[in-house]
């Protein structure tokens, strides 16, 4: 092969390997800075103790409350975003005519383009006082507020990926169902959705990963209390919010610093598992 050809090909190799290097860089930096937290606490206490007092003496690094906070707001977000996102996908793909479709799609894309910090601002400055008024709760910055905002943020993820999945369902299946005397709704529920199942489930898992990792919204609107919530109107302190809020106030190399990286490891593992599920389980079954 020509020399120039070889050089060119090598550049493409190197670029591709960079992506692997970056991924390993992320994993290594998390583990390098995060594993030392085990010098100060056991893995059992870290994961299953709800006492997060990183600045007390002696400090306590139990992140159960933070994990609980993350799961509460994420599940809340999914309760909102699954019906809205899947509903939007079904409506756009199966019911809307071409013109309505062309209006709705960019509107939903617009939701995806809004920076998370602006969502956070909206949650803090508008939604929080609104919730206090409507629900008569003492604090408007709580798990409920964060769930609503996160839920809306996840809508475009679920809707665009589900819509892709629905649109790859061959028309012949819809025709077969309609020709057998099923109406549109029955066709959607019994044929189209089941046929697009793997894509729809992937979109929900992806939405979950996005919601559990989203930082700015939970940092600004979840309320910040490191406790296991009794109600959806309690303030919580999800994992990403904890890292973002405390990293700036911690000296590098302290136990607290390592503990924050430890939280990031847990967060990474959760999102990585969800990616693997999509990659190997859901998408594989499609074939």
């Amino acid at each position: 092969m020509d020399f120039k050809e070889k050089i060119f090909q090598s550049i493409t190799y190197i670029a591709s390997i960079c992506t692997i290097v970056f991924l390993f860089g992320i994993i290594l930096s998390l583990f390098f800075e995060g594993l030392p937290v085990l010098n100060f606490t056991s893995i059992k206490d870290f994961l299953f103790s709800k006492d997060w007092y990183p600045t007390m003496f002696p400090p306590k690094f139990g992140i159960l409350s933070l994990i609980a906070g993350s799961f509460v707001v994420t599940l809340g977000a999914l309760v909102i975003s699954i019906p809205l996102g899947l509903g939007a996908a079904i409506y756009i793909s199966e019911i809307a005519n071409k013109r309505v479709k062309e209006i709705l799609k960019p509107l939903i894309e617009l939701l995806a383009g809004i920076p998370s910090v602006v969502y956070g601002l909206f949650g803090m400055a508008f939604l929080s006082p609104f919730l206090i008024k409507v629900f008569q709760v003492p604090i408007g910055l709580n798990a409920f507020n964060a769930s609503i905002i996160l839920g809306i943020m996840v809508v475009p993820i679920i809707s665009s990926m589900s819509e892709d999945a629905l649109s790859t369902v061959p028309n012949s299946l819809r025709e077969a169902s309609l020709a057998l005397g099923a109406n549109k709704w029955e066709t959607i529920m019994k044929v189209v959705l089941p046929a697009a199942k793997s894509g729809v489930i992937s979109s929900i898992i992806l939405g979950f990963g996005r919601a559990i990792g989203e930082t700015m919204v939970v940092l600004m609107v979840a309320g910040g209390a490191a406790q296991i919530p009794d109600s959806i109107f309690d303030p919580v302190r999800p994992m990403p919010a904890t890292v973002a809020a405390e990293m700036g106030e911690t000296a590098i190399g302290t136990p607290h610093f390592h503990a924050l990286f430890g939280i990031a490891i847990i967060l990474f593992i959760i999102t990585f598992i969800s990616i693997l599920i999509i990659e190997f389980v859901v998408m594989r079954r499609k074939k």
């Binding site: 992506t19 992320i26 930096s29 800075e33 990792g213 990293m247 990474f268 990616i275 990659e279």
Partner: peptide, 30 residues
């Protein structure tokens, strides 16, 4: 290699942005 790069890309796309922050702090800043 294609397979690994693909997994790497998909994983990078799903990594929470705060983790990018920690990565940048560890690698680029320090």
């Amino acid at each position: 290699l294609v397979r690994i790069v693909r997994v790497a890309i998909n994983t990078l796309a799903g990594v929470p942005s705060i983790i990018y922050g920690l990565f940048g702090l560890t690698v680029f800043v320090r």
